[in-house]
Design a binder for these strands. Structure first.
Lengths: 188, 188
DNA sequence: GTCTATATACGGATAGAC
DNA sequence: GTCTATCCGTATATAGAC
């Protein structure tokens, strides 16, 4: 799959992914993507028939990226507690992007909910990927019964921090909360 | 100020406020608002010159509404701890709207950040109103030094719960987290 | 103050030459 | 596969009759 067309398609996806994150889905036009990639608007439809097709592909790509990341964590981090800490550490690692654009998953789900978009459920499945993985880690830490609840709690905490950090454009709060969450994981 | 024009202006604001909440600012057109109010598109510009003017007015209105609500709480609830619980109780009281549309403040700030809209700072000031009030309550509970941090924490928790509830379209999590937050307030 | 008609721009989508 | 040209719908915004 290393043909020129596949490369171009991949580049469109990558660019659309970034622009949807930075500008929002609805606010990003074909022109924006085409200009950023460096192709003509018309040529666009050779790769994607509709705008919703691009969104669908971007969401799939994000899902693949997340799954791959979690698999790498599973392989390289043996202790489930350390895995949870690695998850919390996303906040620190992505602090600059979060400050500017918030969480890619959270902001997309929020937007698609308002648009009542047909891809809303698929976007929410990105949350599900994380949640299912978190549930596994909590179960390994002998939290069989409240694993689901704990996973949602951790998801929500991260979303809250990302949203406030984005709104206030200030990273100090993010650092404090990341530390709080690490302590929370330690005390489990 | 009970003239017919003032009434109409007020009705436009109310309608725009709701539609911006339910559909998002960018996705809501003049036609949407005009149709909902029952006036012609053209007549719209008699009241507001640009779409940004409406947004600005809606944000101001929301600020006034919040201030009035907090003042009522101050007058009717003597204990700062009870006031904090009343704040947490917003989640329960607004659970249906949150499930469908998320938090009005949070989702607006998220959208305006992506649009890089000039009203972004004014929207964030709505958060500030709540935060300043929360800071006061924490100080009254002898949390002088970490009042600001605690206020941001509570804000973020609420935002996280609202976002996840909206994404999952499920209120069970909201109920659990609201209870957790009440306990958290109790333990301060 | 309220309406209709319209100017203007932009976005998604298509047709067809090369 | 890539381009230019273009259709069509919709959005903001304006002009002007009533």
């Amino acid at each position: 799959m290393g043909t020129k067309a596949d490369q171009c398609r991949k580049q469109i996806l990558e660019t659309a992914d970034n622009l949807f994150y930075q500008q929002g889905f609805d606010h990003t036009s074909f022109s924006d993507i085409a200009d950023a990639v460096g192709i003509a608007r018309g040529n666009f439809y050779y790769y994607f028939k509709t705008k919703d097709d691009i969104l669908s592909a971007v969401i799939s790509k994000r899902g693949d990226d997340i799954l791959q990341m979690l698999q790498e964590w599973d392989e390289s981090i043996p202790d489930p507690r350390d895995r949870l800490k690695r998850y919390v550490h996303i906040l620190i690692k992505s602090k600059d992007e979060i400050e500017q654009y918030g969480c890619p998953m959270g902001s997309l789900c929020t937007e698609l909910a308002k648009l009542r978009h047909s891809e809303q459920d698929n976007a929410n499945d990105l949350f599900e990927i994380f949640r299912n993985w978190l549930v596994e880690q909590f179960k390994l830490l002998n939290h069989k019964k409240d694993a689901k609840q704990l996973a949602l709690h951790l998801l929500a905490r991260g979303q809250g921090v990302a949203l406030i950090t984005n709104a206030y454009q200030d990273k100090t709060f993010l650092r404090n909360e990341a530390k709080d969450l690490e302590d929370w994981v330690d005390k489990l």
